[in-house]
Amino acid sequence: MAVSSLGAISEYHELLFAWASRTIRARYQQSVLGGLWAVLQPAATVAIFTIIFTQFIPIDTGVPYVIFAYTAMVPWTFFAASISDMGDSLIINMNLVSKIYFPRQILPIAALLARLMDFCIAGSILVLLMIYYQVPFFALGWLFIPFILITQMVLALGIGLTAAALNVFYRDVKHLIGLGLQLWLYATPIVYPIDVVPERFLPFYFLNPMVGIIEAYRAIVLRAELPGPYIFISVGIATVVFIFGYWFFKRVESQFADLV
C-alpha cells in the first residue's frame, strides 16, 4: 500500500510542484519585501538573542554569536515553519479536499517543499556571513549537508503528516503544534551551545532528534568537522517517525472529506 501511494506521488508530481510553487507565489504576492521575509524571520530572532547573549548574559560560543546562532536558526526556522504549515495544509484547503480527488499527502508535502525555498534563501545569507566572519569552508563536510537536510525533512514530514491528519479531527492539534515548537526550540542547542548542557542530561538530550541535526550543521559549517555518530540517532528516530506518520496519514486519509 505504501508502495502504491508513493507511486501515486510520482504520477502526481506535477501537482505536487505546482501546488508548492502556488504556495510560494501566494505567500509573497502583494508583499513589498517578498522573499526577504524568509531571511527576516530567522535574522530578527538571531538579533534579539545576540543582544541577550552578548550584552546581558555573555556566553562563550567560540565563533561570533551572530553566525553561531544563525547557522542553527535557519534550519530550525525551516523545521518549525514547515511543521506548522503541514499541520494546517489540509484544513486550510478543505474546500479542495472535499471536492476533488488527489492523493492527500500532496498537500503536506507541498507545504514542506514551499518552505524549502525559504530555507535556501535564508541559507544563502549564511554563506555571506561565513565570508564576512572568515569562517573556513569545509568542502568535504558540505557534501554531507544534503544528507542532514534530508534527515531533517524526513523528520518534519513524519511529524507534519501526523499533525495534518490529526488536525482534521481535532483542531487542538494546531495549538499544540505551536506550543510544542516553542518549547522544542529551547530543548535544542540553537540559541545556546551544547557545552552548557550538564553531562548527566546528555543521553536524554540526544533523544531529541533535532539536537543531532543542529549539531551536525554546526560541526560542518562552523568547526569544519564531520558530524559525530550522534547523527545516527537522529536518522533512526526520523525514519521511525516518518514511517509512523505516513502510515497514520494513509490509514485515516479516506475520512478527511467526510469531516469538513
Partner: peptide, 25 residues
C-alpha cells in the same frame, strides 16, 4: 469534476497561473 467551479483557484494568483494550477489539479 465540476463540483465547484474554480475549486483550487488561488485568489492572489493571476488567471494565467490559475489555469495551469487548476488544470493540473
Amino acid at each position: 469534476a465540476l463540483i465547484e467551479l474554480g475549486a483550487g483557484f488561488h485568489p492572489e494568483l493571476t488567471g494565467r497561473e490559475n489555469v495551469y494550477l487548476n488544470g493540473i489539479i
